[in-house]
């Protein structure tokens, strides 16, 4: 039984880590769209870097949550 629980834990941790891929896509999307917008209108780019970072932070937070779940499964459960 202990082995089975261990297996489930590790599989769960691995599955949770997939969520980080979503965060990667999200952050890439934000950065790519920012760059596309910045190239169209470079004069407005500097004033929007704060929004860029806030957006990246929000997108990344969700990935960090799944990373946290993975860590909790690995080390705390």
């Amino acid at each position: 039984m202990v082995e089975l629980a261990l297996m489930g834990k590790y599989i769960g941790a691995g599955l949770a880590a997939i969520g980080l891929g979503g965060a990667g896509i999200g952050v890439g999307n934000i950065a790519g769209n920012f760059l596309a917008g910045a190239l169209r209108n470079p004069s407005a780019a500097a004033s929007q870097t704060a929004n860029l970072f806030v957006g990246i932070a929000f997108a990344e937070a969700l990935g960090i949550f799944s990373f946290l779940i993975a860590l909790l499964l690995m080390f705390a459960v």
């Binding site: 990344e60 937070a61 960090i64 949550f65 946290l68 860590l71």
Partner: peptide, 11 residues
């Protein structure tokens, strides 16, 4: 999210 982001990134 505010706290886990920071700790999670660094960890």
């Amino acid at each position: 999210s505010h706290s886990i982001r920071l700790a999670g990134n660094l960890m």
